[in-house]
Computed example of a mutant assay.
Amino acid sequence: MRLTLFFLFLSCAISSGQITDVKKFDFTKADSIALAHKGKSLGNLPVLTHELTADLTTDVEKFRAIFTWVCTNIENDYQSYLRTRKERNKIRKDREGFLQWNNRFTPKVFEKLVSERKTACTGYAYLINEMANLAGFQSKIINGYGRTPTLLLDLDDPPNHSWNAIKLDGQWYLCDATWSAGKVMLDDVGPRFEPDYNDVYFLPDPNLFIKNHYPLEKELSLLEEVPTLNEFMEGPVLYVEAFSYGVIPTVPQKMRLEAIRKENIGFELEVPGNFEVENLRLTLNNGGRDFEVQPKITTLAAKKVLLEYAFERTGLFDTHIKVGDNIIATYVIRVRRK
C-alpha cells in the first residue's frame, strides 16, 4: 500500500510539472566539462558523476553535463536493440508484465554497458537515471513507443523505446539520450552506429515530444491532455528538424488524408515567437518525383501559422512540410476529383 501511494504521489507530481524555457542557459561550460572527461570509465559512477557536476552551479547545467557525456561516450548497439525487441514482443499484450520484465532486465543491460560501452535505448535510459540520482536529482525511466520516419507503428506492435523524465529546480522535464547520441545506419555493410550528437532531445517541449514519444504511463508525458495511442500512431511523421526549429504540427492530426482537387487543404503549425514564416515550404512527391510548391501562409495568432494549398491534379502525394531545405513533417494525401 505504501508503495502504491508513493507511486500515485510521484505520478501526480510529474503530471503537474510546469516546463521552463531552458534555452536561456549557456551550456558551454557544461559541454566542455563533458568533453574533457571523454573516455572516462563507467566503473565508478559516483566519481564520474561528481567530476562532471562539481564545478557547475545550476541543476540544469549539472544535468546537461551528464546528458552530454552519456550521448558522446556510449555507442548505440543495434544487435542489443534486436534482442530487446524480441523479448518485448513476447509480452507485448501484458502491460504490467512488460514493466516488471523491464525492471528486471535493465540492470543486466547495464552490466554489458559498463564492459563494452555500447547499449540499446534501455541502457541509455538506465545510465541517465543512475547518474541523475547520484547527482541528487529525481529521475524516472519511461518505457513506451518511439516513432521515426523509417519506423511506423500499429497497435499490435510492442513498446519499442525508453527515455527519461528528470526533475530540475523543482520542475519536470523529458529527455532522450538514445536519439541525441546519433543514428544506426542500415546498409550493405550491415548495421553500424554513426555518432552525431544533437541536443534537440535535451529537455524539449512536451507538446512536441509527444509527437514521436508515447509513454505507457500517460502521466509521464507531462501533458494535461494526452492523445490516445491510436491517435499517436496515426499522426503525421515528424523529423528531428521539427525539434531544431521548435515547430509543432497541430492540424491535421492524421498523417493519411483525402483532399479535393483545386480545393484548399490546410496545415496548422505552432511556431516560436521569432520564427520566420516565409521560410515555410511544401514539397510534393508523386510517382517518385519531387516538386516544390509555395503554399499560402497566414498568421493566425502570435505563435500559430496556417499553410494552405490546392492540388492541381489527382493522385497520391507524399506532402512534406519544410523549413528552408529541411523536412519537418510528412503527410500522405490522396487527391480526388470530388
Rank of each mutant, 00 (worst) to 15 (best):
1 M>L: 12
2 R>C: 01
4 T>S: 15
8 L>Y: 05
8 L>H: 10
13 A>S: 14
13 A>G: 10
17 G>H: 12
18 Q>C: 07
19 I>D: 01
20 T>K: 13
21 D>Q: 08
27 F>D: 07
29 K>N: 09
31 D>T: 08
34 A>R: 02
39 G>S: 06
45 L>N: 07
46 P>G: 06
52 L>D: 07
52 L>T: 09
55 D>E: 13
55 D>R: 12
59 D>S: 14
63 F>Y: 15
67 F>D: 12
75 E>W: 03
81 Y>I: 02
82 L>G: 00
86 K>P: 00
103 N>Q: 13
105 F>M: 06
106 T>E: 09
108 K>P: 00
109 V>W: 02
109 V>F: 02
111 E>Y: 04
114 V>D: 05
116 E>R: 15
119 T>M: 05
120 A>K: 07
123 G>S: 09
124 Y>I: 08
128 I>V: 15
128 I>K: 06
128 I>M: 14
128 I>W: 00
128 I>H: 04
131 M>H: 09
132 A>I: 06
135 A>R: 01
135 A>F: 01
139 S>E: 03
140 K>W: 11
141 I>Q: 14
141 I>H: 02
146 G>R: 10
148 T>G: 06
148 T>I: 01
152 L>E: 12
158 P>I: 07
159 P>N: 11
159 P>T: 04
160 N>P: 02
161 H>Q: 05
161 H>F: 03
162 S>W: 09
164 N>K: 02
166 I>H: 02
168 L>N: 00
175 C>Y: 05
176 D>Y: 05
177 A>L: 06
183 K>A: 08
184 V>Q: 08
184 V>W: 08
188 D>N: 15
192 R>H: 14
196 D>H: 14
199 D>K: 02
201 Y>Q: 06
202 F>E: 06
204 P>T: 08
208 L>F: 05
216 L>K: 04
226 V>N: 06
235 G>S: 15
237 V>N: 02
241 E>C: 03
243 F>A: 08
248 I>Q: 02
251 V>P: 00
257 L>E: 07
257 L>W: 01
257 L>H: 07
258 E>W: 05
258 E>G: 11
264 N>F: 04
264 N>C: 00
272 P>S: 02
274 N>C: 01
277 V>L: 12
286 N>T: 12
286 N>D: 05
288 G>S: 01
289 R>K: 15
289 R>E: 15
292 E>M: 11
292 E>C: 07
293 V>Y: 03
297 I>H: 05
303 K>P: 00
304 K>L: 08
310 A>C: 00
311 F>P: 04
312 E>F: 01
313 R>E: 15
315 G>V: 09
316 L>F: 11
323 V>T: 12
323 V>L: 08
324 G>E: 10
324 G>M: 07
324 G>C: 09
325 D>N: 10
326 N>H: 11
329 A>F: 03
334 R>W: 02
